[in-house]
Every structure is written in C-alpha cells, then in structure tokens.
Design a protein around this nucleic acid. Structure first.
Lengths: 346, 346
DNA sequence: TTTTAGCACTCGACTCACTCAAGTGCTAAA
DNA sequence: TTTAGCACTTGAGTGAGTCGAGTGCTAAAA
C-alpha cells in the first residue's frame, strides 16, 4: 500500500505526463506538490515507486513516466471523481437533434459527438436486439423483376433489401410464402424466427414450391443483417493524431481492425455494467498495446443495453474522459428512451 | 523539341525515379541506356533538360528528378503504350461477381478492385442519372406511424427512406398525394420531377390538404438523394502508404477532402472522354500538390457516362496505371451493360 | 528516523569538425 | 561532338565536446 505522499506523487506524475507528454522530474514535483518537501525526498519516494513497478524511466537519467501498472493504480484509486464540466454536458445535450428516423441514426451520431468531445476514436453499439420480435415482412414489387423485401421489428428497426426474382418464379408462390411467414412467425423473437426459418418453414412450403431455398435465403439474409451487431465508429481520423506510431503499415493494420466488426466485438466486450478502463497490454490485442480503451454500457430499460467505447492513447486524461463517458451514457440512454416513447408507446 | 537522345534520357529518368524514388545520376544512366555514351555526355544533355525545366536537382550535387513539366512531357509523349498485363486483365474480369442487386454495388466494388490493383486511392461515380425518369413512388406503412417511401427510376435505381408521419395527418390524404404524384410525374425526367414537385404539385394539393409542405419535403429529400452525385472511394488507407507527408494534420485535412462529395466532384471533373492525367499543381487543389490524378469516363451507351479516377503520388508508374484505368473502364462499362440488360431489356 | 544539501554521474540533444561517396560543371584533348 | 579528367558541392554519417535536466548516494541536519 502506498503512503499518502507516494499517492500524491504518483497522481502528480500521471497528471503532468498525460498533460504534457514529458517525463516528470523530481524538481518539478517538489515545486508543484502542496506539501513542501525537497526534491531529494521526492527522489527517494520515486525510487520506491519505481521499485513497486508503478513508474519507470525512459533512460537512466530521465524523469519518470507512469507504467501500465501505475496508470492502473491511478485509475483505480486516485481518480478525481469530479463532476463533468457543465459546458461539456450542455454540448452533449445540444448535439442530439430531434429529427432521428431510426435508432441507427442516433447511434451513429453518438459516435461522432463523443469523438468530437474526447478528440479520440469512439465506438457505439445499439441496444441488443436479441429480444426484439418480428412484427412483419413486406414485399413490394418494383417492376422489372425487382422486389424490395422489408423486415420490421417491434422495436422499430427496419431493414430492407432489393433483390431480383428469377423469371420462372411465380409471384403467387412468393406471396403465399410471405403470408405463411407472417402468419407463423410474427410476434416471435428474432432468434426464434431465424431457427424456424431454417427448419420449420422449409418443410411446409416444400410441397407447393419448386425451389424454396432461394427465397428463404433472402429472408435469412435480411434477418441476419438486422440481428448482427454493427458497431459505429466515430473520429476514425483522430487516430492519426494520437497514435504515436506513424508507420503507414501499422496504421493500416489498425484501420483494418476498426473495419472488422467481429474483431471489434471481442475487443469491445464491456466486462460489466461499470465504466471499464483497459490500459495498453490489458486490451488483449497486440495492435492496441499503446492505447487505452474505456468501455461502458448504457441502459435503455426494457429495450436492452448498448455499448459505447473510447479508444485513446495510454497517456489520456482519464478523469475527463471517464467523466465524459459517464455523462454521455446517461444522455444517450435518455435520448433513446425518448425516441422509443415518441414512436412506440402511445 | 527534344532530340531522340534527350527523350531517351528523360524517359529513363522518369522510369528510374518512379521505380526507386531515388534521384538519377549520369553514371547510372550511361550504363542503362542502350546507346553507349559516356556519363559526361549524359551530363551535358541533362544540363540542357534542366535548362528546359524538365528535370531538377534536389540539391546542387544530387542526381536529377523529373519536374512537373517533365512528367507532363513524359505522359504526353514518351508513354509506353504497351498492352496491359494479361494477368491484370484477368484479375479485373474475375473480381466482378454476378450477384449485384443494384448499380451502387457495382460502383462501390469497382473502387475497391481498382485500388487493389493500383495500390492507390480510387474514386468511382455511376453513370449520370440526369436522364433517368421517375417510374414511381411507393408508400409502405410499417405500423406505429412509420412509413417507408420508395422511389424507383426507370434505370432501376431504388432509393428508400423511412419517416414518421404526424399523428394528425390523414392517411387518405397521403395516399391521394401519392396517387397524384404518380399520375402526374411518372415517366418524366428526374430533374423535371423536382421542379414540378416544387411548383406545380403544391398548388394542386393545397386545396385539400392542410400542411402539404411536410409531405413534399420527404419526396424532395429522397429525390435529391437519388439525383445527387455520390462518389465511392476505394483504398482510402492506401493514402497512408504513398503520401509523403506524414503529418497527422495534413493527412486529416486530406481525408476530410475525400469525404466531401462536393469538393470531390470539382476535383474529379473529367475534362473530356479521354484518360486525363493531372500532375501535382495541375490539380487545382493545394492539398493535392504532391499527387497525380488520373481521371476517365466510362461509357454505358444509352445509360450515360460515369467516372473513374485514381489518385496516387506524382512519382507513380504512369504507363501501368494508365493501362489499368483504360482496361478497367472498358470492363466496367461491359459489366454495367450486362447488368442493365439482365434486368431491364427483356 | 526522516529529511535535506551537496555532489558526482548519466544520458539525450545539440553542435562542430571531419570524412566519404555520389554526383555535378567545366576544360581541354580526342 | 564526345570524352577523360578534375575540382567542387552536398548530404549522410561519425566522433568528440558541451550543456542541461535529471538521477543516486552520502553525510549532515532536524
């Protein structure tokens, strides 16, 4: 356990270093700490902190820099639980408009707002739709063998896709399939719809349809699109500013990662419903060793929980960023509830 | 006018420099040219070329590097009009699948294929839809006050948008507006549809509708979306590799440019129906001074002309890149015709 | 026992002088 | 007109020297 003075020193080192990017020396600390002690005393304490692995030197005669463990200790114990800046809260509240036509627009906008505020790269995921139920499939003929298929869920998600029907397909057949699907599957959770669509339904329509698989694939396709987790990424290009590695190849690898939803969903897993901070190597991905990741859920009551995350440099202003994430998750939840209430709970 | 030997030297300088990135010296040239002359002779010729502004030194005792004017001369006169590599043609042909559901998918895919081949950043624009005609508007009620509006053009473009109708709006009213629009505007060119929608139609429906503007805004919105030029960008991150400026701010400015459709459409204007090469400052945009831009149209017969473009470093392999663009524009035109024939000309 | 003053030491950053290699321009001879 | 030869220029690299910020350690002071 650290003494009060050691805590103060570690805190000051983290603050200075995250603010300036420069290693912090004993003299600077002696001047900036409220207790008046000499730089020699600070040096002794720093030697102790280094012994414990909380701070490190860049070279044998340089000032000290926090280690991963040091950041960890800082985040766990020394964080300034100050209220978020009132102006930031105002910005958050004003950045959401009212003119959203779908959930995805709110989620996408969220990523942008949060990245603007933090100047880092952000990720947002809408509330899990696993519990959403199918409210109906529509087919809209567009002429020229083209048809638009539309899926609507009871949570208000709309997913559409146009496709071309083979010349030899009977449109009556198609319509009877749609009727069957709507009759049998409306009101069921999407996960169940998916399994039924693959097991139950094919048996039923086999009798009166020549090649059922083609049609069902389309529904499958739309359905999996709706139920797949789709992260929105904000401030992608901010990465150029805070990544200390300017090697094009490393950056390209990083950007490929940001485009891979599957990889993202493993990396961004929010361990629990708190605001979680993972620092450098604690993120289990080599590409992100020089970064810190703050993840959090936001809770939209019966509509489920979504995820927001901020990726920044290990030397980020943790207090401020965590504060922003905290304020933001609440406002986002509020916005979503508003949206749902506006459209679905009259 | 250049002598044969001067041409050969300029050509060799461009070839070497684009291949290696190193300034080219007289000795290297003396060895690599087919005519056997001494390095001293080469030096005399190089002095002449420099006098003419075709090549330059990086410092007073370095080898020579092509100037913008030198590249220009090379591209205009010394290009190797060799056939494109057969393997590249094969790649181009095989990279297009058959499973496209809309034009936009072909265009987006094109940008990716071309950027993979060139390793540069590419832009594609689908054929101008100015001559496209409205084939119909549909409205599909989705429940909970939500409605999906779908616009279909005779060129097969489909654009949809969901919106929420005010509680006090009469759905009968809405349907009669749709009927009116379809009756009056089907078959007209989109540009005309737009003007009618703003002038003619409001007068007609004013009589039996309280607040026509809200509804018409929706159609306006969808329509302008369809008729706006939307560039697809491929290989965005390749820019990191070939941009010689690694300053984060400069890169961010560049990426902002790539996201601005309006700016892109002025920059990417294809001067005529040839393959046009603009080098460095010839592109009228300060951000692109260190790049070269190759633009070309592709011609899909009665369906109009689209644009493809490649943005790379001034020291790019012009012969190869121009060859690729040339082969690609033809294949793309073919693919689009195929697509149109498959769906619209039965 | 803790703190502090003092001092020798270390290391990166910078500067300066030097060398080396690649390239140039120019002159005079072929 | 071409070429051999040579003096000259320049960036890149190297090694020595200085400076400043920082350290660890010792011994005296509190």
């Amino acid at each position: 356990m650290l003494t009060k003075r050691q805590s103060d020193i570690l805190q000051a080192i983290v603050r200075h270093y995250t603010a300036t990017g420069q290693p912090v020396g004993s003299k600077l600390l002696a001047d900036s700490l409220p207790e008046k002690v000499s730089s020699a005393t600070i040096r002794n304490e720093m030697a102790a902190l280094e012994e414990m692995g909380l701070i490190a030197k860049e070279h044998s005669s340089s000032g000290r820099v926090p280690s991963t463990v040091g950041y960890r200790y800082y985040v766990d114990n020394l964080l300034d639980k100050q209220a978020v800046d009132a102006s930031d809260v105002a910005i958050i509240q004003n950045s959401f408009g009212q003119d959203f036509n779908k959930i995805d627009e709110i989620v996408a906008r969220s990523a942008d707002i949060l990245s603007d505020l933090t100047t880092f790269t952000t990720f947002t995921l809408k509330p899990e739709q696993k519990m959403a139920r199918l409210s109906g499939f529509r087919l809209v003929p567009l002429g020229n063998q083209q048809v638009m298929a539309i899926l609507v869920t009871d949570s208000g998600d709309v997913e559409s896709q146009t496709f071309t029907i083979p010349r030899d397909m009977n449109t009556d057949e198609l319509e009877s399939v749609i009727r069957l699907i709507n009759d049998q599957l409306s009101g069921l959770p999407l996960t169940e719809v998916l399994t039924r669509l693959q097991q139950d339904i094919p048996l039923r329509i086999k009798s009166y349809m020549r090649s059922p698989s083609g049609v069902l694939n389309i529904f499958d396709n739309i359905l999996s699109h709706v139920s797949s987790e789709q992260f929105f990424v904000g401030g992608k290009m901010n990465l150029l500013g805070f990544s200390h590695n300017h090697d094009p190849n490393a950056l390209q690898a990083l950007y490929r990662l940001l485009d891979q939803n599957e990889s993202l969903s493993t990396v961004l897993d929010p361990l629990d419903d708190n605001i979680n901070v993972r620092i450098g190597s604690e993120i289990s991905n080599k590409l992100l060793d020089d970064f810190s990741l703050i993840t959090a859920t936001y809770d939209v009551d019966q509509y489920g929980k979504g995820i927001i995350a901020v990726l920044g440099p290990t030397r980020m202003p943790y207090s401020r960023t965590i504060g922003l994430v905290s304020a933001f998750r609440e406002e986002l939840a509020k916005q979503m509830l508003d949206y749902y209430h506006r459209y679905y709970d009259q």
